[in-house]
Design a protein around this nucleic acid. Structure first.
Lengths: 233, 233
DNA sequence: CGCATGGTTGAGAGGTCTCAAGAAAGGTGG
DNA sequence: CCACCTTTCTTGAGACCTCTCAACCATGCG
């Protein structure tokens, strides 16, 4: 494998390369090895759904998606958000349970793994394991939010999670980011009703912690948000 | 490696061997390879606590324990229960987050991995991966419980989880099992208050779904419990 | 027998939900 | 560019679930 400088620098702009680089220093060869294992970007519209167990591993290239589990009476719980650069199917998460679905929350582009076994080199393996561990950690945070935090705390914590994750891939500014989520989605993630989500957001605005304008979310007081989010994590 | 028949049949009685056998058919060599990698059983009293990130991988041999995360104001969320035969530290779960603790809920015995790298054979690797996936699946169930189920549903679902897991290692009868948990622990697991746990248990008894006598939990109507637990999982 | 621990009850407060309706925002065709 | 329709957000009011506080009972153990 002998990647050209152009190929590498193009790849470096891809969010999954950026995100994996957080967990291990990837050589140009690592990057091109990775790129070679995944197909062309394919696009899907918001609302597109896929049984998580049925798919090959993939990276999300752009857009927001989630993993969700539906109850038989229509209630739905969002298990995790997928942001650009996030992978699905590398760890066991998605395979471990039927009835976990991937749902596109916006228009998305993704790159599926090509058929055939993928045996990553040591650095790449470390990066993939790191990303999987990070996802596990977020799932744990989610349990804590749902089990032991108030609506206000949950929302503060989730907003900070989004901000941190988007900063990692340079899709957020120091003070804010685009959050293309309906309040209904926030409700299904945080285990609250749509109406209550609305009121909690108002409260955060009234307290001067955030500003929302359309899909633009501005964090006015990160320190106060962290205090509210607690988890002392 | 040439294990004696006695060694193997003794090992087969150990709960972690039993549990791993659910995920792959282990040869006698696999079993003795596994046994050789873990030290003697060490005992700890209820209440014993350990930072999950600090420990070597281990198997719980007997007793009940849990993984928990504490908030700064004293609130606590139990992330997962550890039953005899369960492992900690093989997947990323425990390592991924500081401030996740292992807590012994009863007297426990555990066997830590011996120092040095552990490179399991293919069947053993499959079994370990299967066990890790099962644990992930339970974590997902937990998220759904906490996010989208009522107290009654959560309790029903958790009782069924206990029953199924204990049946796997032959520590439950068809209709019941020993549940050595204080109501406070159930509260921290299910995201409810101690008082409410008490009332929910009464309700389950009143509805004829369970009987509790001391630590003995009897499931009178598994079908009805499953209906209540939903998750249609 | 007496203390300590864990379970049970009662009453009132509070957070969150549901239902229902109205306002705003966004997209589409004329 | 406007009118219209759909989607999403916002508001109000009452109900319900769950919480907190504060006792009181049961059980087990020294």
């Amino acid at each position: 494998v002998k990647p050209s400088a152009t190929q590498v620098s193009n790849a470096a702009r891809e969010p999954h390369v950026r995100r994996l680089s957080l967990f291990a220093t990837l050589s140009p060869e690592d990057v091109s090895e990775l790129q070679a294992r995944f197909g062309r970007a394919e696009a899907h519209k918001a609302g597109w759904t896929l049984g998580a167990a049925e798919t090959r591993p993939f990276f999300l290239v752009s857009g927001w998606a989630c993993l969700a589990h539906g109850l038989s009476d229509g209630r739905r719980q969002i298990l995790a958000f997928l942001l650009p650069g996030d992978g699905v199917g590398f760890d066991l998460l998605s395979r471990s349970r039927k009835s976990v679905e991937v749902i596109a929350l916006t228009e998305i582009k993704l790159r599926q793994a090509l058929p055939g076994a993928f045996v990553p080199g040591p650095r790449l393996a470390r990066a993939l394991a790191g990303a999987a561990a990070a996802q596990q950690g977020r799932l744990i945070d989610h349990v804590v939010r749902l089990g032991r935090q108030t609506a206000y705390e949950r929302m503060a914590h989730l907003l900070l999670e989004f901000h941190d994750r988007l900063l990692d891939i340079a899709e957020a500014s120091e003070t804010g980011f685009e959050m293309p989520l309906k309040q209904e989605v926030l409700a299904d993630a945080l285990g609250l009703s749509l109406v209550h989500i609305n009121r909690i957001l108002q409260q955060l605005r009234r307290d001067g912690l955030v500003i929302t304008r359309g899909k633009k979310m501005t964090l006015l007081n990160r320190a106060a948000l962290m205090l509210a989010a607690d988890q002392n994590a």
